[in-house]
Design a protein around this nucleic acid. Structure first.
Length: 297
DNA sequence: CTCCAGGTGATGG
DNA sequence: CCATCACATGGA
């Protein structure tokens, strides 16, 4: 069990801000202290707030070297989000409120390949349905891995003592699957898009690793050349898979916010930080929407 | 059973 | 260039 002190870090805000599909609650350590299961880059992590510490205290299931060598970068902890928040106008009360609500959000450093396929799947699907399909796609390989979490189980018997998980399929693995294999995971009409993307990536025609060097504009342009990838999926892949923090995915929620609060145009000064600012606004907009749904009932 | 989901591509004006 | 429509499923 690793004890950590991290500022400006909120697990719920990260998990619920629509950037990842494999970070979910696995139970509670104590009431009000949810434990999150994070599956990324072939490994699985349990992490939660520390009930015996302050708001910046966390517990994690990995070793210190795993944290230093991988998770610190994965959670983007070397980035000072205060610098991004400073782009916001002090008089922009809407955005200020969003940033207060979403304080602790980080844009995760996720793998480009996983982001591309996950967001192709995401179109016209609800978040729970996306999660189900992504998990099934991962389980296709049958190559299960196990995380021993007996230490967590000992602290609260409601928590599992071990977790079975499946890494996200590599380009090669996905390229070898049949139409029926992929289609059986619930990909629907996107099955062909996924197969074609995997085929192109496996032949090297599409080199995701090399795309790291491209400018934002060039990157979006290459992504848009993939069947089933429009501006929204391309933007999500660029922001969440290539960490392009100035790119803003415009979905129905952001369009509503942009029309309602910014007369249809983002302020020019927000531009360099728009990917981050958008994340705060998306989280807040979704949260308010969920609240209003509860009121209706 | 019905409705809708962090959209995209094809088609017709 | 803009408006409209079909699209396969799972979740609520």
């Amino acid at each position: 069990m690793l004890h950590l002190t991290i500022d400006d870090f909120d697990l719920r805000a990260i998990a619920e801000s629509g950037q990842c599909f494999r970070m979910t609650e696995a139970g509670n350590l104590r009431p009000g202290f949810p434990v999150y299961k994070v599956i990324a880059s072939g490994s699985c992590l349990l992490i939660s707030g520390d009930p015996d510490g302050d708001e910046n205290s966390f517990l994690a299931s990995c070793t210190e070297s795993e944290w230093e060598n991988f998770y610190k970068r994965y959670f983007d902890l070397d980035t000072d989000y205060g610098i991004y928040r400073d782009h916001a106008d002090k008089n922009d009360s809407f955005l200020q409120k969003c940033m207060e609500y979403g304080r602790g959000i980080r844009i995760l450093n996720q793998e480009p390949w996983e982001m591309l396929i996950s967001f192709i799947i995401s179109q016209r699907k609800s978040v729970p349905a996306i999660r189900t399909t992504v998990e099934r796609l991962c389980a296709l390989s049958g190559k299960e891995k196990i995380l021993d979490c007996s230490e967590w189980h000992a602290m609260n018997s409601e928590l599992p003592d071990r977790i079975i998980y499946y890494p996200f399929p590599s380009v090669e693995t996905l390229a070898e699957y049949s139409f029926e294999d992929i289609n059986s995971t619930g990909t629907g009409y996107r099955t062909g898009y996924i197969m074609e993307a995997a085929r192109r990536a496996s032949t090297g025609e599409l080199d995701l690793h090399a795309m790291d060097k491209l400018s934002d504009e060039e990157l979006l342009s290459v992504l848009l050349g993939i069947q089933g990838v429009g501006i929204k999926v391309a933007s999500c892949t660029a922001l969440f898979g290539f960490h392009r923090l100035s790119i803003c995915p415009e979905d129905v929620w952001m369009k509503r916010v942009k029309e309602q609060f910014y007369a249809g145009v983002w302020p020019e000064s927000y531009r360099p930080a728009l990917g981050v600012l958008q994340q705060y606004m998306f989280y807040y907009a979704r949260l308010e929407h969920e609240k209003s749904k509860i009121k209706e009932i």
